[in-house]
Design a protein around this nucleic acid. Structure first.
Length: 438
RNA sequence: GUGGCUAUAGCUCAGUCGGUUAGAGCGCCAGAUUGUGGUUCUGGAGGUCGCGGGUUCGAAUCCCGUUAGCCACCCCA
């Protein structure tokens, strides 16, 4: 505030103080445990990827949102001298998601198992405009199954995601399911030119928000004939009828997926949604998106991408994945007060009277720590009330006082800050009492 | 990228029709005699009113610009 240097983190990026970190770790712990219980193994990849890896995988909007890194030193000077444009000034970028790096890894390590199930929990970066629940740096929690076209893979990734959400206490989430081929068939059957397919899909995606007339209007603005738009909407509305999926040509894979998933944790949460489109261009088969009450965007999304890995080499390898957005989950959990008590900070603050040498406090703290207690030693020796007040503000459940008399007797005065009770006991008993919250 | 709203103390905000030294609550710091917190009481620190320009005798207040943040779209996780 004083010298005019902004102390805020960059737009769309955040600092996490202790309570934030505790909540994030709580969620990540559940995610990791559940993913591992489904047999997924961890992967971590670099923050930075070559632009050749990233570009052309996400569609034109995605490419625009990439954080690009300028050439360094002489290369930059040469590029500037040569009058390079924006694209020519950068050669690397921050990863935009975890799926494309995974595809690169699979193409790069030819000795990976034929079936590779990996999970990955890392931040990604998008130069998007920040909004509620949307950041420029955020964590994705991905599970992917590489090497099979079996719908068992879809059922398993949906099951893993559903299990995580249930264990965190969600009950009202829906996993919307659609199929890229099904969507394509809707569009072409309606008589819409293939080049307008993605435009039509984006308009369709808003059916719930802007309604039938709104979608028709938007289709019209994009140059799609009203008659074709009507046919498309009529077909989709028919597809939304209960049981319609089984009668649709091309609906078989989803019928099978629903049957498989019915045996797993996602069973009550899957929902066929013929209007679900999804923007990322690499999806080829079933696509997913998770919604829940009170959240405009999604908690996560995914789908099958059988052609992506092949973009990095000669070999086509089928794959399907699902990604959970950590900050979306946190946002909803915070609003709904879904967090249990997350103990952070020391369990006991060791206070010391002026006449006690500091090394005695350090020794006592070490003894307590060796018995499994989280201990903070108060560094200074102001009035005891200040030390206790600090312990109180920390939220520590106990304070311990080490004074002349305790030092002589080999004890500490252990005070329960909630009840106010105080006992003078040996270090071992103090540790027992703290751990049992006596 | 589009539309709207906001910007005053660390936080949440008040500030009349343009008028003199810009306020409150919370928080913070210090006290209310010896080694005991939460409650109470007293005192204190902390502001170029986002930034730049304009109108005016006079601007936190009106006008223009700018930056940042928020909300709704778009898109996404």
């Amino acid at each position: 505030m004083s010298k005019g240097i902004s102390t805020k983190p960059p737009s769309g990026m955040r600092d996490f103080l202790a309570p934030d970190v505790a909540r994030r770790r709580h969620v990540l712990g559940v995610v990791q445990r559940v993913y591992e219980s489904f047999g997924f193994v961890p992967l971590e990849t670099p923050t930075i990827e070559n632009l050749t890896t990233l570009l052309g995988k996400y569609g034109p909007e995605g490419d625009q949102l990439l954080y690009r890194l300028l050439h360094r030193r002489e290369k930059l000077a040469r590029a500037l001298e040569a009058g390079a444009d924006e694209a020519g000034l950068a050669d690397e970028g921050l990863r935009y998601d975890l799926t494309v790096p995974l595809a690169r890894v699979v193409a790069n390590y030819k000795d990976l198992p034929t079936y590779y199930k990996r999970y990955q929990i890392q931040p990604v970066w998008r130069a998007d405009r920040p909004a509620r629940g949307r950041f420029r740096e955020f964590y994705q929690c991905d599970v992917d199954v590489i090497g099979t076209q079996s719908l068992v893979a879809e059922a398993e990734v949906c099951g893993a995601i559903a299990t995580v959400l249930k264990e965190l206490g969600f009950s009202d989430f829906k996993i919307h399911v659609n199929h890229r081929e099904l969507l394509r068939a809707f569009v072409t059957d309606a008589g819409i030119a293939p080049e307008n397919e993605s435009l039509a899909l984006i308009a369709l995606d808003k059916l719930d928000k802007i309604g039938r007339d709104g979608v028709l209007k938007e289709l019209g603005e994009k140059g799609i004939e009203p008659a074709a738009g009507e046919r498309l909407l009529a077909a989709l509305e028919a597809a939304r009828e209960p049981g319609a999926l089984g009668r649709l040509t091309g609906g078989e894979p989803l019928v099978e997926l629903f049957a498989l998933a019915a045996a797993g944790p996602a069973s009550d949460h899957l929902l066929f949604d013929p209007t679900l489109a999804r923007g990322l261009s690499y999806y080829t088969g079933p696509i997913f998106e998770i919604t829940c009450e009170g959240l405009a965007g999604s908690l996560g999304g995914g789908g099958r991408y059988d052609n992506l890995i092949g973009m990095f080499g000669k070999q086509q390898v089928p794959a399907v994945g699902f990604s959970l957005g950590l900050e979306r989950v946190l946002l909803v959990m915070e609003e709904r007060a879904m967090f249990p008590d997350l103990g952070v900070g020391p369990e006991v603050l060791l206070c010391r009277m002026k006449e006690v040498p500091a090394h005695d406090a350090i020794r006592v703290a070490s003894e307590l720590r060796s018995k499994g207690v989280r201990v903070e030693v108060f560094a200074d020796t102001p009035q005891l009330k200040k030390q206790l007040n600090y312990a109180n503000n920390l939220g520590a459940p106990y304070a311990a006082v080490l004074g002349e008399s305790e030092l002589q007797a080999g004890t500490i005065a252990l005070k329960n800050l909630e009840s106010g009770e105080q006992v003078t006991v040996g270090v071992a008993e103090a540790a027992d009492r703290i751990r049992s919250r006596a």
